[in-house]
Design a protein around this nucleic acid. Structure first.
Length: 446
DNA sequence: ATTGCCGGGAC
DNA sequence: GTCCCGGCAAT
């Protein structure tokens, strides 16, 4: 035990993992203690990852763990960030798991895992609907840990409370997932000498339990992060400007259905088969530039193949609720996840595909998205002072002909998952080539 | 301080 | 073309 000893800076206590139960299924829990063999006690490097390290896992009681509430495991037994990935295991029938289905995370049970192909048949029991259905997913799409919930639900989640509480006086926790490069990479180095600034000590990182948990949550699944649905601005609705916004400016949502962000009935052949949403990067300095444009915000339903547009968010919420969510048990105002704000001023044709990223649909063009967000935001910011005049709607065109606008300045730091985060340094071999080369990640690319 | 990744060099 | 990495920008 680590009694009295200073905990390694990158202690993993508090990390959520899955550990095998006696029935072969994995159950989720939290690392409660780490026991390091004597000769590793003076472990001042970052992690206690030795083959002999034992991890005490406290199972989430609710998920049942065959009577045990805690048990000890070796590193190799555990699945989770910093430990094994699902890729190495064979899931047994009945294994509880999480997958992204229709853009949102759902909980299911493994029916069959075809080890040869690593395809997994998962039975999903939709909440409030009787018949479970089965989906086939690839093993790497299957998660044993729940990734995240709507912010609203997350608030009620006791896991965090537990994390924090268990950490007690320990201030550091960790997340393996964010491990910083181990200084092992110059073994077969091709060229350049390692810079002297490459100091091992620079590896220390600290996180408190909450951030660690947040990171964990956002890492494992997050469909591509802040999608349009996740953007919500205070007082967005013209007629609710006085209601002083209870909505946070950023909300991590369960992924909404593939966003059909088509300001115009654009062909949106569902951007991809993955759970990737639209990335909203933008340039803050575009705000002043476009400050004067007059546009108007409407609210568009993002339910697949529904293009309903309304003027107020109340209306669109009502629409979503009554039209799309009526069959579902949705106590938590999920309709918010199914609409997005659209700036009518953008209804002119999308930017041309004449350059850059020819491969991707225009609506995934980061530049275009930047514009969307930039203009959405600035509009919202200025909405109070500006009259809404439909006559000027077309003033703003996505690609002003001014050649001054840098079309592709340095790529905005992506908010997506990154191989480094997802696989960690331990599994660098699983990184996409680009990540290995310190290039822009392509696996979780926008 | 850390991370993402561009730009450019070495092969 | 692949691979690597210094160094900058964003966080």
């Amino acid at each position: 035990m680590s009694t009295g000893k200073r905990l390694a800076k990158r202690s993993i206590i508090g990390t959520r993992v899955c550990a095998p139960g006696e029935d072969g299924k994995f159950y989720s829990g939290v690392i409660q203690a780490v026991k390091t063999p004597a000769n590793y006690v003076e472990n001042n490097n970052c992690i206690n990852l030795t083959p002999n390290t034992r991890y005490t896992v406290r199972f989430d009681s609710r998920q049942g763990s065959l009577g045990r509430t805690t048990a000890e495991f070796r590193e190799n037994d555990l699945i989770g960030p910093g430990f094994q990935s699902v890729l190495g295991v064979e899931l047994v029938a009945g294994q509880k798991c999480f997958v992204t289905h229709n853009g949102r995370e759902v909980c299911g049970e493994v029916c069959k895992h075809h080890a040869e192909t690593d395809e997994v048949i998962i039975s999903i029991q939709p909440f409030g609907i009787e018949a479970p259905f089965e989906v086939q997913k690839r093993l790497e799409e299957v998660r044993l840990l729940e990734s995240r919930k709507s912010a609203r639900l997350a608030d009620q989640d006791t896991d965090f409370a537990r994390l924090a509480d268990m950490a007690g006086d320990r201030k550091r926790t960790a997340s393996h997932t964010i491990d910083v490069p181990a200084p092992s990479y110059h073994n077969g180095s091709r060229k350049r000498r390692p810079s002297s600034s490459h100091d091992d000590n620079s590896k220390d990182s600290q996180m408190d339990e909450c951030s660690a948990a947040l990171v964990l949550m956002s890492l494992s699944c997050s469909p591509h992060s802040p999608n349009l649905g996740a953007f919500s601005y205070p007082g967005t609705s013209p007629d609710s400007s006085s209601s002083n916004s209870s909505s946070p400016s950023y909300r991590s949502t369960p992924s909404p259905p593939p966003i059909a962000f088509s300001p115009h009935s654009t062909p949106l052949s569902s951007s991809s088969n993955s759970d990737e949403g639209i990335v909203m990067d933008y340039y803050p300095d575009e705000l002043p530039r476009k400050k004067k444009s007059l546009t108007r915000i409407v609210f568009q339903c993002t339910w697949p193949s529904c293009l309903k547009i309304t003027n107020t968010c109340e209306t669109i919420e009502a629409h979503v609720r009554s039209e799309h969510l009526k069959d579902q048990v949705c106590q938590d105002a999920e309709e918010e996840f199914y609409y997005t704000e659209v700036e009518l001023g953008l209804t002119s044709p999308p930017p041309t595909l004449s350059h850059q990223d020819m491969a991707r649909p225009f609506h995934e063009d980061p530049d275009y998205q930047r514009l969307l967000v930039g203009t959405m935001r600035q509009t919202l910011l200025s909405q109070q002072q500006l009259p809404q005049s439909p006559h000027k709607l077309l003033k703003l065109s996505p690609r002003p002909h001014s050649p001054k606008v840098p079309l592709s300045p340095r790529r905005v730091r992506g908010e997506n998952k990154k191989c480094r985060k997802v696989y960690g340094m331990e599994h660098k071999e699983q990184w996409c080539t680009q990540c290995k080369w310190k290039k822009a990640c392509t696996r979780f690319a926008e």
